[in-house]
Design a protein around this nucleic acid. Structure first.
Lengths: 188, 188
DNA sequence: GAAAGCATATGATCCAGATCATAAGCTATC
DNA sequence: GATAGCTTATGATCTGGATCATATGCTTTC
């Protein structure tokens, strides 16, 4: 189940955790203890703004890794909340650091994972720069962002959910997308 | 001059390049040959949208590293353009990969740099989610984004330069900032 | 020192998206 | 099966920022 580089870790480094919807894996400013790999279900990384508004930074699906940067950080920088039941593997920070010392293969694999993250974030910043709501949604859907609810998509791409619904309808009218059911849209 | 982890690289891995304003270090989709460290001057990482609009992804100042992810990528994902004369050190991709195999200290140092990048991008995404122009600028200035022109700041935080000037004036009226000269503003 | 090019402003207008309001459908729970 | 809470959906209104226009100041260059 563990992806590539993690096979180099000692078995004791990993702990499987079953999650329920709404479970909190960690909160912002908590002391870091490790990083996580999603086995099944979904985990949302979010920050709560001063005004109480929720910002989704990342949504990790099956196979997705998150909080990798926590290995080099004293505290978590956002909240990790399970939006759907499933399970995650928690990998102890100390073991990651130790294995980086002993295994070049692990080191390189782990670094590659971080590099992928960097590229994903860059792509996301680019997406957020698209001024038109319709275009932004179209690109987001093409990039596979639309894997849950419309409301969830909206918060990820800095749109109100109303604007998101309207833009989706517009894209359907334009023939770029097709409505295939309540809250279900696909590219045409 | 080289920061921490790069002292583990063979001397031949690094090449110093003097840059003039406007110099292009690499362009999107070019084959990757290495990563860069800014010694002096500024390098902007940008992508040109389909409509010809320029999006600034990152701005590397003295001591800043960029294109680290290129080590694991076949092509560059954006353009690197020098916005001010100075010099950069180019570090060969092959040497980075080789040294990761041989030196755990380098590996860990390099990975830490990527982890920092991840956190910076996360913070940037958070910044972009701030709806009000005035607030967004205030946070950006506090985060040290305003190190060049107003126009440059505007493109980095997804605002028109007009909106940026107006918001700066507004922040001065509110007493949050002070205009200290033509195009110069500081926090009060 | 004239001309070109860019950053700095600021005013006027317009519109896309935020916000507010409303309602219906689906799910879970007691 | 009633209630609560959520997502979906759409209409009405309002506003903040984009866009367009204009002008001035600073640098660079020939």
């Amino acid at each position: 189940m563990l992806s590539d580089p993690f096979s180099h870790l000692p078995p004791t480094a990993c702990r499987t955790i079953d999650t329920q919807k709404g479970d909190v894996l960690f909160r912002q400013d908590q002391t870091t203890s490790g990083l996580y790999l999603v086995v099944s279900g979904y985990v949302t990384l979010q920050r709560t703004g001063l005004g109480g508004d929720i910002l989704t930074l990342h949504r990790a699906a099956s196979g997705g890794l998150f909080a990798e940067a926590s290995v080099f950080s004293a505290t978590y920088h956002c909240d990790a909340i399970c939006t759907e039941a499933g399970s995650v593997v928690k990998i102890a920070k100390a073991d990651v650091l130790a294995t980086m010392q002993s295994s070049p293969a692990f080191s390189q694999g782990f670094t590659r994972l971080l590099a992928v993250q960097v590229q994903q974030y860059r792509a996301h910043i680019e997406l957020l720069a698209i001024p038109s709501a319709k275009e932004r949604i179209l690109v987001a859907v093409q990039a596979g962002y639309f894997d849950a609810t419309v409301t969830e998509l909206a918060t990820r791409i800095n749109l109100s959910h109303e604007a998101c619904y309207r833009a989706l309808r517009g894209l359907c009218n334009d023939g770029h997308m097709v409505r295939v059911g309540r809250g279900k849209y696909t590219l045409s």
